[in-house]
Write a protein that binds this DNA or RNA. Structure first.
Length: 103
DNA sequence: CTCTTGACGCCGG
DNA sequence: TCCGGCGCCAAGA
């Protein structure tokens, strides 16, 4: 159960849940779409409560993810068909999501 | 309130 | 390409 949390945390989790399978968003993109905070802050939120959402759909801008999670992430990417290299780097050009409000 | 930590991003060397 | 340094913000101690 999720107890009351900051508004920023709520928005980050809501957006991450909207990312379609097979697609990804960078930490910085999440902050940009919300028009609040920066990648660093998004990472802080996911580190604390990311377990409740598809956290593997949020990666660094270069398509990599922290070493501590790359193994688990690759498994999810394989199941969802997210384009990625065997080393654990998502092909951003092909997997980047347009966002909830495609212009 | 201040200080530290962290699943980031950009620029240099 | 691989570091190292610095700035960014949110949350916790």
């Amino acid at each position: 159960m999720r107890t009351l949390r900051g508004e920023f945390t709520e928005r980050v989790l809501d957006l991450v849940e909207q990312i379609p399978p097979g697609k990804v968003l960078s930490y910085g993109e999440v902050a940009a779409i919300l028009e609040q905070g920066f990648g660093r802050a998004v990472g802080t939120v996911l580190a604390r409560e990311g377990a409740a959402v598809p956290w593997w759909r949020v990666v660094r801008k270069d398509g990599t993810i922290t070493e501590q999670l790359v193994q688990r992430a690759v498994e999810h990417w394989a199941v969802e068909g997210t384009p990625h290299s065997p080393e654990g780097r998502v092909d951003m050009a092909a997997a980047l999501w347009n966002g909830p409000y495609p212009t």
